[in-house]
Design a protein around this nucleic acid. Structure first.
Lengths: 236, 236
DNA sequence: TTATAAAAATGATATTTATCATATTATAAC
DNA sequence: GTTATAATATGATAAATATCATTTTTATAA
């Protein structure tokens, strides 16, 4: 049975969490946060490991407390197309939970992750009893939809070179840079190719070109943006 | 002032409507349908005309009572990339309304249309007071998201030929065929190319190939599917 | 540290698809 | 019906990108 002290404890577990501050969950009141904290399960996922696979029934959502993940789909020829990168503060698996469907994509860790699983029943309870939460969730899915549509358009209307420039800028914007000015998300060339939708070799070749043009600098496997202005122009 | 008789009249205007039967609006109760009917405005849009343009603030959604529309974005080089076809029974403009943003895409009629405009305030009222409606709306956006993600993957992982086969099958599935077995939605080759994301000439060339292979038959500008099985195999 | 594997880089070539030119056919206006 | 206009069709060629082969570099484990 839950007493006052354990409530306070339970609430604290989620109340200060970055996901609670950044995601749809920010609309939850104190009681709801307690309920949330009591129903969640925490997992640590190492780089490369999977959170869920395509076709799996997840029955809930994952809060990303720390780390970076990728949502991707494996093609027949063995290439992994990355649909979206997700980072701390975001929710994962909203779409398939709402649609009552098995996952359409696989979720894997790109950097070591800490995630919390929240059962579907909890989320649906919040959805039905908290208008601000349901509106937030709705807006979050709408944001994903807009991004996906724009990505789709870019795939058709832009060259691989433009998409690479665009992606590098987006990674810089969304994930920031290390002390040495290199991009914080560290993706392999293969993963980067999977985001822009091209062959790994083509991606590597273009990175070399960008390097020669002084748009970027290749520091081992890391990438440093050197001329953001020129990259932006190129992406248009 | 609204009296009993006009309520009945007002309700009937929307209650029997196909949109009410097929869209998220099916969750509305009688009172809500009356409210809906009293706030809506009906428009007729001729083939080729626009419902709204990219960047426009719509402040509501459009119910598609009849006809077919396209959501598209014009590229710098003048090509119109079609993101989605919408047909009678569907709602249009949900995404930008929920996101509080100007339209990201333009909506134009592909066949003569009859649409009803419903102001944002009405939709938000339903969203906040009818859980089934908000869940329906949510699921509808989730469905759009899933389709968009799958389209994105197909653009990268499939060839133009495969995407054409896939699109022809989808048009057949979603819109059906005429008495002469040709596809009911009549798109120009340019529009078809805009859906699969290729140059008009490439699309025409592949249609010719499909014709020669007896997969389809070109009846003037219309298209008849002759070997669905083979098209399905090709699309994989 | 050295051996081994994995990732990145580069070259040569093939394939896919776009572009430009032009012909043919269908549609609409008169 | 005839003419003008747009849509469809096809050929020739160019450009973009993928694929396969090989080398170099980097990371990892013995």
């Amino acid at each position: 049975m839950v007493n006052f002290t354990s409530n306070i404890f339970a609430m604290n577990k989620c109340d200060q969490c970055i996901v609670r501050q950044l995601s749809s969950l920010k609309a939850l009141n104190k009681d709801e946060v307690v309920k949330l904290a009591n129903s969640k399960t925490t997992y640590k996922i190492k780089k490369g490991e999977s959170i869920f696979e395509e076709g799996e029934i997840t029955n809930g959502v994952f809060c990303i407390k720390d780390g970076v993940g990728k949502l991707s789909k494996l093609s027949a020829n063995g290439k992994d197309q990355i649909v979206k990168l997700v980072q701390s503060g975001e929710l994962l698996g909203q779409r398939s939970m709402i649609s009552n469907e098995p996952a359409n994509l696989s979720a894997k860790a790109v950097a070591d992750m800490e995630v919390c699983f929240i059962p579907k029943t909890e989320i649906l309870h919040f959805f039905n009893n908290n208008n601000q939460f349901s509106m937030n969730l709705m807006q979050s899915v709408c944001e994903d939809l807009k991004e996906s549509e724009n990505d789709k358009i870019a795939l058709v209307q832009k060259t691989v070179k433009q998409r690479l420039a665009e992606t590098l800028l987006h990674l810089h914007d969304a994930f920031g840079e290390n002390d040495d000015k290199t991009l914080k998300v560290q993706l392999t060339r293969e993963e980067l190719a999977g985001i822009i939708g091209t062959a790994t070799e083509s991606c590597i070749r273009l990175l070399s070109d960008f390097n020669k043009l002084d748009l970027i600098e290749l520091v081992g496997k890391k990438i440093m943006l050197k001329n953001v202005k020129a990259l932006k122009k190129m992406a248009e």
